[in-house]
Design a protein around this nucleic acid. Structure first.
Length: 741
DNA sequence: CCATTATGTTTTTTT
DNA sequence: AACATAATGG
């Protein structure tokens, strides 16, 4: 019976599936079938008679949770699959808190603040405390507080060693108070408050420990202190904890993830079994060898895995240099077109990965030009778009009128004549009365004397009437109708047309419509539950959750988000100093190692083909700078990589230094032209342009072209030439342009 | 109070 | 380069 569950599992996987009780740590290399192990283990537990109701699985994304349930509904009976508790730390905590937060004297109908809300609230705190917003950016202060929360450090425990600490500590305190008043929790609170409840109310913890006898935690290497604590609490005495992870794929230290959690598992949980999954089912040996060479270049490891595969050697990994980010993107787009034309690959089988979202722009343009279908994951997230957040703010106020961030957001949106003065006067007056902003609005309905002009007062009252209307409608109307009512009463479309040009207004209006479409999925729930479920799920969806695996489109995605995904063909772009490792990480050896792991994650996403790309120069921040290939390339033996074609004179300079020890550690990120050393042909910077518009030229690679313009830039001459295929910008000192008659 | 202009800021990475 | 907020003037 259970035998079919084991068919197709290798001995190590099988051991992991069968180890039912006690702590188990599975160290799973990339592509080693860990998802399979997780699902089969759950199925095995159920078939062994364990109640699915007592199984709790923590995944890294909502998408992974959904997929796990789907796979299980095939392996076990669907009712059993349904009884499982599966989710991310954040969504599970939110779910538990809806039940338990009353223990802390708080209301169940809290709203969840996303990073934008959090920053707005912090800005308000900083203003309230009369701090200089320049010297104390809300973002920076909030970041400090967020990491404190991740470390389970409360505002009273926050260190006050210097003036900056003192400021942060005071902001922390006020920030928490405002959150509480607004009946809101930020992302971090979702975890922290649950830990508090478990600490303060042992009987509550006991209930959860009894219910969840079997815990499974994926991506254990990316847990932070709060998450680690939660797991410890839930694991209790029983310690039926099954943790899966890979320290080589730990890339979230910046949000508090602590690699020590996985390294110390064996000390934390005595008698634990450790199982290594080393056989890779995803990639070719060529790709694995390259990735392993890279990761071996890093520091010492607790457990060294030796990845191998039966997939065969496969194609050699190739390296490509582009002239700039546009040419790099063009190369990627051309190569994808070629792969698809060959019939061996589909658009959906290709992915382009990069370090920062801003890199997606050049790709988008190149793909657009070639009519290659693509989807960009992340960037400005859908639910962070202004028009979306504005409409959502009304929904959130309808759900919880004390939500002060939402109130501040839409008090004057769409513009109704409540300016800065009326708003600050309202805040001041509320503070004077000692009530919340919303209660102050309510106060306007009585005969209490107010500090407002008759005009302001009536505007504020009509705003209040609007919200009241929505609150009343919520009890009667299905969610979609409620949204329609809001959109109509506010005349959102008109407001968008007023703020933007026709095209953009239409696009934003479509976004708003999309919000409504999503809401349609919730109308089958009882009316009371529709809005709350909708708001909660919206607050916790991530961009990867929305990746459409079925669409036949190229996926453009950050390296962080790509973790856990796989594609037949993968292009890694921008493999340059300053970008990977990112300049903000290159001063700290530990951060540099994290960047190395990020590259490792990217490489191991590839099944058959892996392309490594970098550009010779790059436009960042509106300025051009020359770049050096990433130091990590120096750790990969030359013979593992198919060297780039010499595509122009420009290619030789950075390329030559690549594997020769130069470009190694300590190199300053993007070199300034001055530090590049003597140039081969042109030791002296030009003082005037030598190419004029209309001059016919010849280039070794691009052939004949005509000069469109030329200008002096950074001590060199940048010539814009129209070639047969496209327009290119070339540096005269490198391009060896030949003037034709 | 609002529209226009000027200035400044941004780019890590995410729930 | 693109976007957001601040300053300025109507």
């Amino acid at each position: 019976m259970a035998e079919e569950l084991f068919s197709g599992l290798n001995p190590a996987q099988r051991r992991a599936v069968e180890a039912i009780s006690g702590p188990v740590l599975v160290l799973a290399g990339p592509g080693s079938g860990k998802t399979r192990v997780l699902t089969h283990r759950i199925a095995y537990l159920i078939r062994e008679g364990i109640d699915p109701y007592s199984i709790l699985a923590v995944t890294f994304t909502n998408k992974a949770a959904r997929e796990m349930k789907e796979r299980l509904s095939v392996l076990v009976n669907p009712a059993d699959a349904h009884a499982l508790t599966v989710g991310t730390f954040h969504s599970l905590c939110a779910r538990f808190l809806r039940r338990e937060i009353t223990h802390l004297g708080r209301e169940r109908d809290f709203v969840i603040y996303d990073s934008d809300d959090q920053e707005r609230l912090m800005r308000r705190v900083i203003r309230e405390l009369n701090l200089d917003e320049k010297k104390n950016p809300a973002r920076a202060i909030h970041a400090r507080i967020s990491s404190a929360k991740n470390e389970l450090v409360s505002s009273s425990e926050f260190p006050r060693l210097n003036y900056a600490d003192e400021i942060a500590a005071r902001c922390y305190e006020r920030y928490q108070n405002l959150l509480r008043e607004s009946n809101a929790l930020d992302f971090d609170d979702l975890l922290v408050e649950l830990v508090h409840i478990f600490e303060l109310f042992p009987n509550v913890l006991e209930w959860y420990q009894n219910r969840y006898q079997y815990l499974l935690v994926d991506e254990y290497q990316d847990t932070n202190k709060v998450q680690y604590t939660l797991v410890r609490q839930l694991a209790g005495e029983q310690r039926n904890l099954f943790a899966v992870g890979d320290e080589d794929q730990s890339v979230y230290a910046f949000r508090g993830a602590d690699i020590r959690n996985i390294r110390q598992f064996e000390q934390d949980y005595s008698d634990s079994q450790v199982i290594l999954l080393e056989q890779n089912y995803r990639s070719t040996q060529a790709i694995l060898d390259t990735a392993q060479a890279l990761i071996a270049g890093g520091g010492k490891k607790k457990h060294v895995k030796k990845l191998w595969t039966k997939n065969g050697v496969g194609m050699q990994v190739s390296l490509h240099e582009g002239y700039d980010q546009d040419e790099e993107a063009s190369f990627v787009a051309d190569e994808i077109t070629r792969l698809v034309a060959s019939g061996d690959y589909s658009y959906g089988g290709c992915a382009v990965m990069y370090r920062i979202n801003a890199q997606s722009r050049a790709l988008e343009e190149a793909l657009n030009r070639r009519r290659v279908p693509y989807q960009i994951v992340g960037g400005t997230r859908f639910y962070e778009r202004k028009e979306i957040k504005d409409v959502l703010a009304y929904l959130r106020l309808t759900f919880n009128p004390y939500d002060s961030v939402s109130l501040g957001r839409v008090l004057n949106w769409p513009g109704r004549g409540i300016g800065e003065r009326s708003e600050s006067e309202l805040l001041r007056w509320a503070a004077e009365l000692g009530v919340l902003t919303f209660q102050a609005l309510r106060e306007l309905e009585s005969d209490t004397p107010t500090p407002f002009t008759a005009r302001s007062k009536s505007t504020l009252l009509s705003f209040l009437a609007l919200i009241d209307q929505f609150i009343a409608a919520r009890a009667e109307l299905p969610l979609t109708n409620l949204i329609d009512l809001i959109l109509a009463r506010l005349d959102v479309r008109e407001a968008l047309v007023k703020d933007y040009d026709a095209e953009e207004a239409e696009e934003r209006w479509m976004n708003v419509q999309e919000l409504r479409n999503v809401a349609a999925k919730y109308v089958n729930l009882p009316i009371e539950g529709q809005l709350s479920t909708y708001l909660e799920e919206i607050a916790l969806v991530s961009e990867v959750d929305k990746v459409d695996g079925k669409a036949d489109a190229v996926t453009c995605i950050t390296l962080h988000q790509a973790k856990g995904l796989e594609y037949p063909a993968v292009f890694l772009v921008g493999l340059e100093e300053g970008l990977l490792p990112h300049s903000r990480s290159s001063d700290d050896p530990e951060k540099v190692e994290e960047e190395r792991r990020l590259l490792y994650v990217g490489m191991t996403r590839a099944r058959q083909r892996l392309y490594l790309c970098y550009a010779f120069r790059r436009l960042s921040f509106g300025r051009v700078s020359l770049s050096t290939p990433t130091r990590f390339l120096a750790d990969i033996p030359k013979e593992l990589i198919k060297q780039p074609k010499k595509r122009s004179a420009a290619a030789t300079s950075p390329q030559a230094s690549m594997f020769s020890g130069r470009g190694g550690y300590g190199g300053a990120p993007p070199r300034s032209p001055a530090s590049t050393g003597p140039r081969p042909q042109r030791p002296v910077a030009p003082t005037e342009v030598s190419f004029v518009s209309g001059q016919p030229v010849h280039h070794a690679t691009f052939g004949k072209g005509v000069v469109l313009s030329s200008r002096l830039v950074d001590g060199d001459e940048e010539v814009t030439v129209s070639f047969a295929d496209k327009e290119r910008k070339l540096l005269a000192s490198f391009a060896r342009l030949e003037k034709l008659a």
